[in-house]
Design a protein around this nucleic acid. Sequence first.
DNA 1: CCCATATTAGAATATGTATTCTAATATAAG
DNA 2: CTTATATTAGAATACATATTCTAATATGGG
Lengths: 193, 193
Amino acid sequence: MGRKAQFTKNQFVDAALKLAAEQGPGAITMGSIAGQINAPIGSVYHRFASREILLAELWLRLVESFQQGFLEALDQGDGLQAALHTLNWVRKHPNEGRVLLLYRREELTSGEWPDEIKERARQLTQELDKGLRKFTRRLFGRVTKKSLIRITFTLIDVPYAAVRRHLQAGRLPPVSVDELVRKTYLAILGRYL
Amino acid sequence: MGRKAQFTKNQFVDAALKLAAEQGPGAITMGSIAGQINAPIGSVYHRFASREILLAELWLRLVESFQQGFLEALDQGDGLQAALHTLNWVRKHPNEGRVLLLYRREELTSGEWPDEIKERARQLTQELDKGLRKFTRRLFGRVTKKSLIRITFTLIDVPYAAVRRHLQAGRLPPVSVDELVRKTYLAILGRYL
DNA sequence: CCCATATTAGAATATGTATTCTAATATAAG
DNA sequence: CTTATATTAGAATACATATTCTAATATGGG
């Protein structure tokens, strides 16, 4: 049944990731994706109905990759580990890190998503929300808007801030930022440990 | 001499700012800028040699606006005030804040800049760098790479992190974030006060 | 060996938008 | 009143890139 495939979905997504990490999302065109692995443009469209969908796939992959370890740490009640996860993840996945942390979702893919993809995205968001709420309850006893902001700030926003500038400059975050994240964590949530 | 002008440079830049703040940088086209104030496209080009240059102008305006108050606080040796300046500035200038803090420079204007603009940008960067170094020396006695990272993290990156999520959601940062920035400041730099 | 079909191949088309160009218009200066 | 010119006006053009289309090609099943 049919010719043997020469290019897989993953190869195209990988190519897009590489382009985005090295030259920014603007460099991702259907032509450049194909060119990256010497595929014809037709083959890209054979795998993905549109550019939007290919990029949505890439985005989901990044979020899933990041979120897994983050939620694992959270689930074990280890908030500091969760906060440091951003740093470790970025160091282990530099390209993924650059794209997920340097660009907004809308910069990659801003059009309409098909239902299947919307559903996967919704699920990821919900998982994260659930994990954060559970951890908040564990720490504070209850979940208020303010306590959620506090937790989100400490576990997500601050690590992100600590890393962004270095990714922007094309480097990995230096070891000294770990200490900054740790200190901030203790300052904001320390008394609840 | 010549016909009386109906549209000024500033009007076009304002229009671009409004578009970016409300619909993202992608919504800034020469047509939409003109449309925003019912001007003909030709008039935009009469004021700006290119889209790039118009957007560079916008970007410089944002940075200048933000940086002024920040450097004033720094100059007075008031680091906490400098850290809180991001919050105050964003609340006072919501549109400017959204665009400066939600999008990267390259997302607005990524092409080549003429020398005059490059020079203004260089000067702004240098001013900031100088202010940060001066403050670092004042606080630590000397300026090392690590101490600069520490200062930058506390005065710029953390306030940015505290604000970003709320701007992204289309709101101004709630008052509770001030406390988070203050706590972080004290945790990281408090002992040097 | 033949067929159905998954895949490659890339040329043709569509579209959105920046930029250029030509003409019309108003105003100040003399 | 005439003229020079800054500005408006918007149509024509250029260009990049997503998408579509038609044809060729290989491969497993019968």
